[in-house]
Computed example of a mutant assay.
Amino acid sequence: MVPTGTNSERPAHGATPAPARAAAAGRIPAQRVAPTAETGPAPGSAPDPGHAPGHAPAAPAPPPRRTTGRAARRGRLRRAGESAYGLLLLGRHVVMALIVLVVLAAGVWTSWGTAQHAMFTKGKERGTLTVAACHDDWCTGPFTAGAAGADHPRVRIDATVTDGKGQRIPVVLKPGTHDAVRTGLPGLLYAWVPLGGALLLASVLLAGALRLHRSAWALGLAGVGVLGAAFVVL
Rank of each mutant, 00 (worst) to 15 (best):
N7L: 12
S8D: 13
P11F: 05
H13C: 05
A15D: 14
A18S: 07
P19Q: 01
A20I: 12
R21M: 03
R21P: 00
A22Y: 10
A25Q: 14
I28C: 03
P29I: 13
R32A: 13
R32L: 09
V33H: 09
P35Q: 02
A37D: 13
P41D: 01
A42W: 05
P47Y: 08
P47V: 14
P49Q: 10
H51V: 05
H51G: 03
A52I: 06
G54F: 05
G54Y: 10
H55I: 13
P60G: 00
P63L: 14
P64K: 11
R65G: 02
A71I: 06
A72V: 00
A72N: 04
A72R: 02
A80G: 12
A80R: 14
G81Q: 14
E82M: 08
E82H: 10
S83Q: 11
G86M: 02
H93Q: 14
M96S: 13
A97N: 13
V100S: 01
L101W: 05
L101T: 05
V103F: 00
V103W: 06
A106Q: 06
V108Q: 07
W109R: 10
S111R: 05
G113A: 09
T114H: 07
Q116P: 08
G123T: 01
G123E: 05
K124R: 15
L129S: 07
V131E: 14
V131Q: 09
A132H: 07
A133D: 11
A133W: 06
D136T: 13
D137W: 05
D137Q: 10
G141F: 08
F143I: 04
A145M: 02
G149Q: 02
H152I: 10
V155H: 08
T160Y: 11
V161H: 04
G166S: 15
Q167W: 04
R168L: 06
I169M: 03
P175H: 07
G184Y: 03
P186D: 11
L188Q: 15
L188S: 10
L189Y: 08
Y190N: 12
P194A: 04
G197V: 09
A198M: 04
A198E: 11
L201M: 08
A207W: 09
G208I: 10
R211S: 11
H213Q: 15
A216H: 04
G220Q: 13
G223E: 00
V226P: 00
G228I: 02
A230G: 15
